[in-house]
Every structure is written in C-alpha cells, then in structure tokens.
Simulated assay, not measured.
Amino acid sequence: MKVARIHNFSGPTAVQIDEIDVLEPGSGEVRIRVGAAGINNSDLQTTYGNYRGPGYEGLPHILGQEAAGEVDAVGLGVTDFVPGMHVVGHVKGTFGEMAIGSATELLPLADEVPFSVAASLPIAYMTASMALIHKAKIQKGEWVLIHPGSGGVGTAAVQLAKLLGGRVIATAGNKSKMQRVIELGADYGIDYSCQDVAAEVLKITDNSGVQVALDGAGQATFAQCLEAIANNGRIVSYGTTTGMDARLPIGKLLGRNATIYGIALWYNSDYQTALSTLGNLVIPAVAEGKLQPVIDREISLKDVTEALLQMEKRLIMGKIIVIPQFF
C-alpha cells in the first residue's frame, strides 16, 4: 500500500511516497481503508521532530492522526466494529491507503456524512468541545473570544460556540479570513494584522471583556486573551503555533480572578468525554447541517508536502483533507 511518510526531520520536504506491506491490526485494533484524512499542525511539527505524540514509533514515520473510512479488518477482542462499517476517529498513520486505529478511539459514522467531511472533525471538534464545553463550561449568552478563529480548531470553535448560544468574537490574519469567520457565525471579526485585539474586544463588550477566551497560538496570543478576559473569566490554551513561551502578567491574572486551562487532547482526562461529545453532538449536528466544517481543499498523497508548506505560511482556511485514492 502507498503511504506518505518521513525518514528524517528536515521539514515538509522530507515527506515521500513509499510502498509498504499492509499493516495487520493487533488486539483491540481496527484496520481502516482510509477514505479521507485530516492534516493538522501536529503533522507539520512532526516533520521537524518537534512533535512525537501517540502513534509515533520512530522513523520512518507515516504522517496523519485522524481519518474516516471503511473497516477492513479487526483484531482480537473487537466486537463493536465489523468489516464494511463506516467509522471516524483518532487513527495513527492515516496518510496512506490503510491505517490502524484503536477500537476505543473510533466512532460509527452515519452514511450521510461523507468521509472527506468526517475526517475534518476529530481533532478540531474534539479540541473545540473540550475547550468550550468540558473546561470553560460555556453558558448561553456569554461572550467568547476565539483567537485565532480561521484555522481548523478556530473555525470549529466559532460554529460550536454559536451552536451552544455564545456571542462570538473571532480573529483572523487578513480581511478575507475575517469576513469568512463572520460568515461562519461569528458576531464580530477582528483582523489581528492591523487591529489591537484586546482594545477591540473591550469596545465590542462595553469594556466588560469576554467570559471565555480560546488561545490557539500561544506566544503571540495568550497575553492578548488575558487582556481581553472579564472578571472571573476562563482562558483555554490549546495551541502554540507562534511559540511555546508566552508572557503571563500575574497582576492581571490575579486582578481578573481568571482561570486558565491548558489542554493537550490525547493526554487529557476529558478525552473520552470529548469523544462522546463528537459522537453525540457534533456528528449529528453535521448530518443535520447545523455545523458545516470548513475544508480548504482536498489533495492527494503526493501533495502533502506542499500542503504542509502552505500551512506553515498560514495560507490555510479550515482543514486540508488528504484523499489517498487520488494518488
């Protein structure tokens, strides 16, 4: 079978297409014929050796951590899934024609949800739901800042926050992306390339600030979220795309009585709860058209390098989806 994998940590250009033997599912595992797989920042960071999360077992390494597809075979002890079923979830090595996932991290997929749409859901919407529902515990009518709001998690969070009754302020790096987040449901958009995020938030909220802020970029965004937070507000930090070392003004943290949550999806105690939310809330809402995942485009395995390079340059809106059969 064909796979997109790396043999060294020299960045996106290290990705190459290899032919390997079909993998066999172990006990408790499911082999999936990959219909579609989502690209994430963690895949970009893996090419540099900066991320070695679940599924990493050394070089050479097949990229990809989420997929939707058809069950091809099951390992010992698997009873909930049978060949032919459509599934979606966290799956290792998804940039290939076949991939292996744990049965405990898969969900059955309704036939009306296309693989390309379903593959965009697990990481983005589980992160967004963990942040908004299971950590910040968003309440109807609360102001929510999503900073930035144009990436995979950001676009998911904008729509999910609106579905939950929040009043949403989303940021983006240019006017076209800002207009897109408003089209997705954000009540207000802020262009962080030319506007002061905290100042604009205070104008919008009549100087009260937001009750919930999602920080998706780390170094360049965390302090701005703290500046924009209301008294007794909650900040959830889930990403570090601009750097891992952020300034923390302790005085403002104390003065605002703010609560800060840091989440790493795979290692969080709310992981299984977020997976249940994906199955019970997100996927049904997608099937009903209440949530519309943002897909930048669909690509083949041979286009993974270029997609990762564009992600690095922040030229992506939403998610890029890999379709192995395009090869």
Rank of each mutant, 00 (worst) to 15 (best):
G64W: 03
T47Y: 10
K313V: 10
S129G: 15
I133S: 04
N174E: 05
Q272V: 12
I323Y: 12
A264E: 09
V282D: 05
G96L: 06
V82Q: 15
Q65L: 14
M317F: 13
V197C: 09
L265W: 02
G35D: 10
D191I: 12
P122Y: 09
G35L: 13
N174F: 03
V158P: 00
I229T: 02
D187F: 08
I295T: 03
G243D: 09
Y261M: 00
A217Y: 09
Q310S: 14
G166K: 01
A36T: 12
G152T: 08
Q224A: 13
Y56C: 07
V197D: 04
Y125G: 07
D296M: 01
N41R: 13
T155N: 05
T47I: 06
Q211T: 01
D191V: 08
D80E: 14
G151A: 07
Q45F: 15
H147K: 04
P25Q: 11
A37F: 03
V82T: 15
L76K: 14
R33I: 08
P25L: 13
E29A: 07
N268K: 05
N8P: 06
Q159T: 07
G53Q: 12
E70K: 14
K302Q: 06
Q139P: 04
A68R: 02
P114M: 11
M311S: 06
M98D: 13
L107S: 10
T79F: 14
V78I: 11
A274I: 02
N268E: 09
A186F: 01
K92R: 15
V236K: 00
V201A: 08
T155I: 07
V15P: 04
P324G: 01
R180K: 15
V82A: 14
T104A: 15
V15G: 12
R180M: 15
V117Q: 11
L265P: 04
L265R: 00
I321K: 04
G165P: 02
M317H: 03
S102Q: 13
I182Q: 12
V88G: 10
V181W: 07
L309W: 06
A4G: 03
Q211E: 05
A172D: 11
I62V: 15
I323T: 08
D43E: 11
R31D: 10
A157K: 00
E298P: 00
I17S: 08
G218Y: 03
S150K: 01
G96S: 08
Q179C: 14
G255P: 00
A223D: 09
D270S: 09
K175Y: 09
G75I: 10
A73T: 07
Y238Q: 08
N40E: 10
V78W: 03
Y238S: 03
P25F: 11
L301W: 03
P284G: 12
G239V: 02
D191Y: 04
L63H: 05
G58S: 12
S269V: 14
T242V: 13
G38V: 07
L309C: 08
I263S: 01
F9I: 05
G84T: 04
P284I: 00
D43S: 02
K203C: 10
M244E: 13
S193G: 11
A220I: 07
G38D: 12
P108Q: 11
E97V: 11
V78C: 08
G141D: 06
Y267R: 12
C225H: 01
A36H: 04
I283K: 06
I299N: 01
Q211K: 02
G89T: 10
L275V: 03
V3E: 04
M1G: 06
